[in-house]
Design a protein around this nucleic acid. Structure first.
Lengths: 139, 139
DNA sequence: CTGCTTGCAAACTGTTTGCATGATC
DNA sequence: GATCATGCAAACAGTTTGCAAGCAG
């Protein structure tokens, strides 16, 4: 789907800034933080405030979703609807998606056992480790 | 283990601030953020800078560990060495520990399949949902 | 008494808000 | 043309750094 279509589908006005932000995110092809986005040349004409406002808008529209890859900074990625997770290099931040996840069955078990929770609608699951490159560089 | 013993065991000098911070964290009995800690009366004599410095020190000493319970803010909890995770209420933040986790077997599978990672040393896994209280209040 | 720890001031990063101007539908 | 989006300035929250004075070992 094109950036413009994605906006229309979500009843958002199609503006120059929004197109630029969305296209940049699509090209980036991996999770990003707003400060990372701000440093990409493509969007450097767009005011940071506009970027923050639209990222937040896209998140409530479920065009983007929030991740917790590193505590303290919010990462975002396109919300494809297909649940997946990540393995992230502690040293350089290199990252790959992973598609294995047992959250469904664990959630059911937890709900059965907990007296205080009635539903689960989200989960986080990320692996952190050392990538080949950083391993080589450390040797 | 007492706060003082914990410090000694980690070769850290036993100071008034460190004792106060550790005791407060121990009494708190659940994950906390630094801003939360700053608002607790017990430690309000201690300079925020000292708190930040010691929390960070305790983390590298593995007295505390970092969690991602909410994107954008770092949560910490005492590192007991026993891996566990949490289920967190989206609305009020109420939280319970959970002890089920499949990360071990998934990690092995991911390592076998990935060409770019050579080890995994950490993972995050948290469930988010709605607790009984908030469910009742919304009705 | 030496070196680590603390407090204070100040800088810095990331993010949000208010308001006037400009663009979309 | 009405409403929503943007840019700019400024505020705000969270966190870090530098330096002089204080304290633990």
């Amino acid at each position: 789907m094109t950036a413009a279509d994605l906006l229309k589908k979500n009843n958002l006005k199609v503006t120059k800034s929004r197109l630029l932000i969305l296209k940049t995110v699509m090209d980036f092809r991996k999770p990003f933080t707003v400060p990372e986005l701000l440093s990409i040349e493509n969007v450097q004409g767009v005011d940071p405030v506009t970027i923050y406002r639209n990222i937040s808008l896209f998140t409530t529209s479920k065009i983007l979703k929030e991740l917790s890859l590193r505590t303290g900074v919010i990462h975002y990625e396109l919300d494809t609807g297909h649940t997946h997770h990540h393995i992230v290099c502690n040293t350089c931040g290199y990252l790959e998606p992973i598609f294995t996840c047992e959250a469904q069955s664990i959630s059911e078990k937890v709900l059965r056992e907990s007296k205080h929770f009635i539903s689960i609608n989200k989960h986080s699951f990320e692996l952190f480790g050392l990538c080949m490159n950083c391993y080589e560089n450390k040797k």
